[in-house]
Design a protein around this nucleic acid. Structure first.
Lengths: 188, 188
DNA sequence: ATTGTAAACTAATATTATTAGTTCGTCAAG
DNA sequence: CTTGACGAACTAATAATATTAGTTTACAAT
């Protein structure tokens, strides 16, 4: 029996992310992760601090990947176009990785500096994009909150199957983002 | 030992709703419900179909209470004022009953006619309020989705502690809703 | 009085997470 | 080479949970 099977924290977290995306974050269990890796449950504790620790790792991974996607979407764009791009990228990320994204939402440990820094990096991207609208410090924060709320709300409802009627969801989303952008221009 | 302790489905669901609101829906366990009611776990099965059934009951209760709150908020109001009112009522409901509200989100059983009817009733209130803007059939649905996404997103992020900075959240919300309403007037 | 029903129970099973302690390669120091 | 420390994965045990099966008993209707 191979004593070392090449388990690493990266592999454990990666498999967990896959499972969370396909079966839902609330269905994530160490038992499934271990089974998928061909390993007994306690072995996971050598790489990850239990289920809570694993979920924290997922949150960190999710925030970082989201930041990455938003940054890429904003490259070479500015103003309205950049807002549309990051909104679309955010929505696409939630739909592609619903479990990983869900992990990023739950209120983090206030003492977790690493996770807080990662979250701030995400906000930073949006702040940068919205800075071009010259809304002032407070105005920019209000706008960041609004944009995030709107995209988060749309994407999570969509991922949860919350839009029953057979009407084009892309169109609904585009209209919502357009309306928000219009508001950015008319605000004091 | 009293053989009948006066347990009813209503009491079970009511206690569960309380626990879900205070400790989070994901922390809801039959063990806690039973303990709170001074009863053994299996006794709950006489009134509720296991944990899954209990969560379904919570979803139904949540949707109905939400519809009730939205309806009340819209009474005697129309146009912009009505939109502001139901948006505020929706947000207040999520903040006051985060667990109950969370239960209403998870994708329901497609065969659950009762739950679907209740959901449709909620949508109906919003449709009625937005009908005054004369957006057409499709336009109204897009607007309903947008409003719901925006309020859902803001309130759930807020409830999850997602807005770190010490800037007035009421103001952020008011601006977002105003921008949305402005969009309703300018859209084709 | 009797009998049926329903509510609550005990007991048993399965799944999960967690901790403690064990085994056994591997690798580096002597 | 040998040896000894370390780490990765293990077994075993414990606790919490949900669920099901089968049992008891109060109460109400006949």
């Amino acid at each position: 029996m191979a004593r070392s099977v090449g388990l690493t924290r990266e592999r454990v977290v990666s498999v967990a992310a896959e499972l969370a995306d396909t079966h839902g974050l609330d269905q994530l269990a160490l038992a499934r992760v271990a089974a998928r890796l061909g390993v007994r449950i306690p072995s996971l504790y050598n790489h990850v601090d239990g289920l809570a620790g694993l979920r924290r790792e997922l949150a960190l991974l999710g925030v970082r990947r989201l930041t990455d996607q938003l940054s890429r979407a904003a490259i070479g764009r500015a103003g309205d176009e950049a807002v549309v791009a990051i909104a679309g990228a955010y929505r696409a990320f939630v739909l592609a990785h619903p479990g990983l994204y869900a992990a990023t939402i739950h209120a983090p440990d206030p003492d977790d500096a690493e996770l807080h820094a990662a979250s701030r990096a995400t906000i930073e991207v949006v702040v940068t994009v919205l800075a071009h609208f010259r809304l002032g410090d407070a105005g920019t924060i209000h706008a960041v909150r609004g944009l995030r709320a709107l995209v988060h709300g749309f994407a999570t409802l969509e991922a949860a199957g919350g839009f029953g009627l057979p009407l084009d969801r892309d169109e609904s989303f585009a209209r919502l983002v357009r309306a928000f952008i219009a508001g950015l221009h008319t605000n004091p």
